[in-house]
C-alpha cells in the first residue's frame, strides 16, 4: 500500500541497509569483464536481506557473493557457469531473472498467451461490430 516506504523487516536489523557494494577487490581492468560482473550482480538476489540484488545490498552475505562472483569472472567462467554455481547452492530463488523451465513456462509465456487470447477476442468483436456497421449503413 505504501510504495517506497520500507518500514520493517531487515531494514531495522542491519545498521545500514541502503549502502551498496564496494569491496576490497580492485575493479576489472577489462571493461568487458567489469560490465559482465556488474550485470551479474544485478541478477543475483541477496538472501540475507531479501528484497535486494547483491549489487545494492550491504549485507555481509552479499559481499561474500560478490567476492565469489568476482573471483569466478576473473577465472574466466561464463555467466551461465556462475549462475549454475549459485543455483546449485541456493536454488532458483537466488536468480532475479527466473530460468525458463517447466515451472516457469507460464510465467514467461503467460503475458503473450494472454495477449494472443485478447487479440482473438478483439478480432471477434470487430467482426461482429463491423457487420453491424454495414447493416446500419444499408438500412439507412
Amino acid at each position: 500500500m505504501k510504495p517506497w516506504i520500507p518500514v520493517l523487516g531487515c531494514v531495522l536489523l542491519l545498521v545500514s541497509r541502503f549502502a551498496f557494494a564496494i569491496d576490497s577487490e580492485p575493479p576489472f581492468t577489462n571493461p568487458v569483464l567489469e560490465h559482465r560482473y556488474e550485470h551479474l550482480l544485478q541478477e543475483i538476489r541477496c538472501l540475507q536481506c531479501m528484497d535486494e540484488n547483491i549489487a545494492n545490498s550491504d549485507a555481509p552475505l552479499a559481499a561474500d557473493f560478490r567476492r565469489q562472483i568476482h573471483a569466478m569472472v576473473g577465472e574466466g567462467e561464463s555467466d551461465a557457469q556462475i549462475k549454475r554455481y549459485m543455483v546449485q547452492r541456493y536454488g532458483d530463488f537466488v536468480l532475479y531473472k527466473p530460468p525458463l523451465q517447466a515451472n516457469t513456462w507460464l510465467l514467461w509465456g503467460g503475458p503473450f498467451l494472454l495477449l494472443l487470447l485478447a487479440f482473438t477476442a478483439v478480432a471477434l468483436v470487430i467482426r461482429r461490430r463491423s457487420r453491424l456497421a454495414d447493416q446500419e449503413q444499408s438500412s439507412r
Binding site: 538472501l47 540475507q48 555481509p60 552475505l61 561474500d64 557473493f65 565469489q68 547452492r89 541456493y90 536454488g91
Partner: peptide, 13 residues
C-alpha cells in the same frame, strides 16, 4: 573465517 565454505553449503544466515 571467510564464509566461503558456508556458500558451498548454501548457508544464508
Amino acid at each position: 573465517s571467510t564464509g566461503n565454505v558456508a556458500i558451498n553449503w548454501g548457508v544464508y544466515g
